[in-house]
Amino acid sequence: METEKHHIVPYRVYVYILIALVVMTFMSIGITKINLGAYSVLGAMIFATVKSVLVLTWFMHLKFDQPLLRFMVGFVVLLFFAVIFITFLDYYFR
């Protein structure tokens, strides 16, 4: 029964997360305006990854849900990266 009791997230927490997301959006725009070559793609992707972790953790409530869900999300992310890795192994060494 305990898991059915929901943790009620205060509104201000969501406001903080939104501010962080918006700031990172502008930072990722800023970093691509500076010419860093390949690093600007890397920078934009790092910002996108941090943003998606915030969305998953707070907006999608993974922080408060059962640990199994977090494990499952982690597994899917790993699976996705494994497929990217294998695909690019193929393309690099062709």
Partner: peptide
Amino acid sequence: WHLVDLIWIFLFPLFYLIH
């Protein structure tokens, strides 16, 4: 709805922020 947001978080830099 958050899933839709999540996908856009990656679509935006990959298509709009190529320079």
